[in-house]
Amino acid sequence: MSGKTALIAFAHQERTSFNYAMKEAAQAALEKKDWTVLVSDLYEMKFNAVLSRDDITGEPKEPNHFKYGAETLLAWKEGHLAKDIEEEQKKVEKADLVIFQFPLHWFGFPTIMKGWLERVFSSGFAYGAKSMFSEGPFKNGILHFCGFNVLAPQIAYTVAHVTQEVRVGILKSWEKRLETIWEEEPIRFLPIQDFDTSGGYVLKKEVEEARSADKYGPTVGQHLGKPLPPDSQVKPEGSGL
């Protein structure tokens, strides 16, 4: 794993938080294995999470009918995206591994992390009409969509309500996983060829029929009423989360 680069996109405003401890543990564990670790501390950076016309420099192509996706695609091609977007995109390009470290807010990202994803993972840079899903969100709809090989999440539950001993154990489990994270197999997703793209991305009837005798369903959202496969989008019980 030596010689590789990791990017930690970190979204928590307090350095006394367990999220910060997770970020520090990841950085130390990877650097111990001779990784170069880049950190985007979004609150520390005061990262702008709001999409706007200011995300491009110069005059937009259609100033009277501004379309964010089309304008940022053109700006990416011509090299006039906003400086903060370009700087973050350069970090992503350098990274062999990207870790998103954040607390769940209402079962999703903190606003600042969502804004980072929306602004940095721009059209052209992160995705396009010819590079969806199998060639490529969170996980399938964002990361796999944009071409990432997605690993299972590392989730720490109810850290505010467990003992210090348990919290230390969670950190050690995370550090242990990072020692061999480059050897992990990515989560399985269905290839786009299995979907009828003319009918709202539903699974093709022939794919359903071919899988009718399978013990497991294909994946989350397309489980066909069966249990999820062991290499699906969540880690199995006893995985040390």
Rank of each mutant, 00 (worst) to 15 (best):
M1C: 12
M1V: 13
S2C: 09
A9W: 02
A11E: 06
A11F: 02
H12I: 09
R15L: 11
Y20N: 14
Y20A: 11
A25N: 03
A25E: 15
A26Y: 00
Q27P: 00
A29G: 06
L30D: 05
E31H: 02
K33S: 12
K33M: 12
D34A: 13
V37G: 02
L38Y: 07
V39W: 02
D41Q: 06
D41M: 04
L42N: 09
K46H: 15
F47N: 12
N48M: 10
A49P: 02
A49N: 11
V50N: 09
L51P: 07
T57K: 10
P60I: 07
P63A: 08
N64T: 12
N64S: 12
A70S: 13
L74K: 13
E78A: 11
G79N: 12
G79T: 13
K83P: 05
D84I: 09
E86V: 15
E86Q: 15
E88G: 06
Q89K: 09
L97C: 08
I99E: 01
I99D: 03
P103D: 01
H105K: 08
H105F: 11
F109D: 00
T111K: 15
T111W: 13
T111F: 11
M113V: 00
G115A: 08
G124H: 07
Y127I: 05
G128E: 06
A129N: 11
S131N: 10
S131V: 06
S134E: 13
E135Y: 04
F138Y: 09
I142L: 10
I142W: 04
C146S: 08
G147R: 00
G147C: 02
F148E: 02
L151C: 06
L151D: 08
A152S: 07
P153S: 04
I155L: 12
A156M: 06
T158G: 02
A160W: 06
A160D: 13
S173Y: 00
W174G: 04
W174N: 05
K176C: 08
I181P: 01
I181H: 00
I181F: 01
E183N: 12
E183L: 14
E184Q: 12
F189V: 14
L190A: 11
D194M: 08
F195M: 13
G199P: 01
G200V: 03
G200H: 03
Y201Q: 10
V202T: 09
V202M: 02
V202E: 05
K204N: 09
K205W: 03
E206P: 07
E208S: 05
R211M: 06
A213Q: 06
Y216Q: 03
Y216C: 05
G217P: 00
T219W: 07
T219E: 14
V220E: 07
Q222G: 00
L224N: 03
L224C: 09
K226F: 02
P229R: 13
P229Q: 10
S232L: 08
V234P: 00
V234L: 14
L241E: 15
